[in-house]
């Protein structure tokens, strides 16, 4: 049992080194940069080959852009106002104090708890906290690396929910919030787990 755990840990650490040294980043960046030109090229060539009036069809589709953006407004106002008020009230400090005994249990530095709590609520807010932590503790400290991993590993759940459901006018989101928050929570635990393996 312990043997297999050691082997697994070893494998994760080795994969991490391979990913960092193999030029994977350069490859992925190049791939990302080419993805959009590639999509445009294929779409237009195929459309043209099928004798589609590409310009007219483009206009027809693009017309909806304004409507979608406007439809999102009430949803985004509702979510962002609540989150803005919450941030301004200073309630986060109390929640951090309340939860900090738990962070020690999972080997998570209490300093990174605000990142975890803010991440699903606000992208700019949590990025601000990450920047502060890196400034204070250094980018290559354990806290700096963990905070970076936490930020990099999930999305701003409430923003995504507001925009996606808002765009089609869905008011009852059913279990979407719960599923999203479970994802965030597992992501947070996994960030702590993998950072401890790779960086400690």
């Amino acid at each position: 049992m312990i043997d297999s755990l050691t082997v697994a840990t070893e494998a994760v650490v080795q994969t991490a080194t391979v990913i960092q040294e193999s030029g994977f980043v350069t490859f992925m960046k190049a791939f990302s940069n080419l993805a959009i030109p590639f999509i445009l090229f294929v779409t237009l060539i195929l459309g043209f080959a099928k004798k589609i009036k590409v310009y007219e069809v483009f206009i027809e589709g693009a017309k909806d852009g304004f409507d979608v953006a406007v439809r999102i407004i009430p949803y985004l106002v509702a979510i962002l106002v609540a989150i803005g008020m919450f941030r301004a009230s200073g309630a986060m400090d109390y929640i951090v104090k309340l939860l900090s005994p738990l962070t020690n249990l999972i080997g998570m530095p209490a300093e990174t708890l605000p990142v975890a709590l803010m991440r699903p609520l606000s992208g700019s807010g949590s990025l601000g906290i990450v920047t502060e932590l890196i400034n204070e503790h250094g980018a290559d400290s354990f806290i700096g690396r963990l905070a970076s991993t936490m930020f990099g590993s999930t999305e701003t759940t409430f923003y995504v929910l507001a925009v996606y459901f808002g765009a089609v006018g869905i008011k009852n989101s059913r279990h979407a919030v719960a599923a999203g928050l479970i994802g965030d929570f597992v992501g947070l635990l996994a960030a702590v787990f993998f950072c401890r393996i790779v960086f400690l």
Partner: peptide, 12 residues
């Protein structure tokens, strides 16, 4: 942090 973020986000 790429490796840790990839792993953590996949779990999430």
């Amino acid at each position: 942090i790429i490796s840790t973020a990839v792993l953590a986000s996949t779990c999430a």
